[in-house]
Design a protein around this nucleic acid. Structure first.
Lengths: 171, 171
DNA sequence: CCTAACTTTCAGTAATTACTGAAAGTTTAG
DNA sequence: CTAAACTTTCAGTAATTACTGAAAGTTAGG
């Protein structure tokens, strides 16, 4: 790759990563900023991000804040420089653990609350519809609980301990 | 629960499941229809779904079609009755395997293509930015490949063989 | 204090995504 | 072949979500 090809490859990657992001529930710009920072060696300031992705200050600011909220990006400051810079976590296993932890908190826990409250309703056992409602939500609750527990454990382990083990067992 | 409480509980569950769905990338109505059918014992026709969820014929039709496309809902017909009825898969493990397989096809594979094509670019090894680009995308590709492989294997196994094993090892 | 450098907010708007309902299409029974 | 019963499509619209940019807020150095 010469430099021109490289810049194109980077821009292309960032743009497509954004598209992928939106097919998961992640907003396009947030995914693009994350891709951009992941590919950079040095932390970047808001203006650099704005220019690189052609987005407004407000947009850059709020998506950067969200990324920091997810723990995928860190704020960095240098002494004698008032600007804030942003740096992405680059280790893939760490990223995975962070995302697992956050999704658990934001998405799995609310679902579990709903499932538990539904499945613990006292029901009329003569009514097969009520019975089915309680049993079905209970089955869902149990499954989500179990996978959550496993994911939790996995995400707290050392990559070097867990992955080789799973690979050996399952592939 | 008397019947009134039961109807409320059901409606509540369906509505909240829809909200949860949209916080993942799934559209509200599709999640609600799925929840509705999961809680019913008998297959339901389009009109019943429309009335139960207060949605239009077109909306019901297209979301039901999508659910069938995902393999989460089956079309059922009865001899001597021209209507089509819809029935949700109710076994939680089967649902999980179906979803895993579909998400793989729709979301993981496109991501892998992108990552592989980026990480296989011939790069100028004197240029640390190019090197980082290729290494970072390669690391992502490897991780996605591995987890995909594992998920694949897990989703093809018998619940009774895999889950107890994982639970024992990880919780 | 005051000002310059920088960050955050938010009302207004644009873009995207989802929904409606009537019309067109399809199938089957007679 | 025809009509009734049912399903699918899609142009128009509504609802949601994301973005802009100017104004307000904050901080630190002088």
């Amino acid at each position: 790759m010469n430099d021109e090809e490289f810049q194109t490859a980077k821009a292309d990657f960032i743009s497509q990563w954004g598209t992928l992001g939106s097919s998961w529930g992640i907003n396009r710009t947030m995914a693009q900023i994350h891709a951009f920072l992941m590919l950079e060696l040095e932390p970047k300031d808001t203006n650099t991000v704005m220019n690189a992705l052609n987005i407004s200050r407000g947009n850059a600011n709020s998506n950067l804040r969200d990324l920091v909220g997810w723990g995928l990006v860190r704020r960095v400051t240098y002494p004698g420089d008032r600007k804030e810079y942003f740096e992405a976590e680059k280790d893939v296993w760490t990223m995975f653990c962070t995302i697992a932890r956050e999704r658990k908190r934001r998405e799995i826990e609310p679902a579990l609350n709903l499932l538990r409250s539904s499945s613990s309703k006292r029901c009329n056992k003569k009514d097969s519809e009520q019975l089915h409602f309680v049993e079905q939500t209970a089955a869902l609750a149990e499954f989500v609980e179990t996978t959550d527990l496993i994911l939790n454990k996995v995400a707290r382990s050392e990559k070097s301990k867990v992955l080789p083990f799973l690979v050996k067992r399952f592939s």
